[in-house]
Amino acid sequence: MLNRHPNAPVADQGAARTPAVGDEEAERVVSGPREVDSRSVELACEPDLAQVSSVREFVESYYRTIIHDGDVICRMAVAAHELLENAAKYSTGGLSRLQIEIRGGANPRLLSVSVSNYADPARIDELKLAIAELGSTADAAETYQNYMSRATLRKDGSGLGLARIRAEAEMTLVLEFQGDQVCVKAVATPIPEEES
């Protein structure tokens, strides 16, 4: 399922480069502090509902090696999973791209998760409305409760994914258009001190 995006590394833009024997620079990098300011993951994959959990588990396990705050990882995982499922449900084909950025090393100060894909034009207005509603609410938890009540009346789908990101993961949602692709970005910044 996972393909390496032609213009981006698979993961870990902050990783130390592979050392070579006798390479003083490489030895200095390896023996230096592990702390880095930014850790990013970028993946391009064919959206497939059956494989979303595998992707989520990969990014969770990757960030667990760097970040000790399980709650930040959980928020990232909720956003990544729900956005990837939406892409799998509503993409019209081609690759979907997952981008995750966590800044601040072991004590994260910014968390960003985005998924871009070719979207069904018929879904765009619904997506715009949902993101506008979730962006304008003064009480994300209360709005989430309203979404939950509405979900009980729906026959198809839950309609909960974006509201869950907004309320449970405490992230704001931004809708961007990139050529023929739509990008939904979830951002949490600044992450409160007591959570990092």
Binding site: V52, S53, E57, A77, H81, E82, E85, A151, S158, L160
Partner: peptide, 13 residues
């Protein structure tokens, strides 16, 4: 390990 929003909907219902 995780529950997606579709399954959460079933719990809510």
């Amino acid at each position: 390990a995780f529950m997606n929003s579709s399954c959460l909907k079933d719990l809510i219902s």
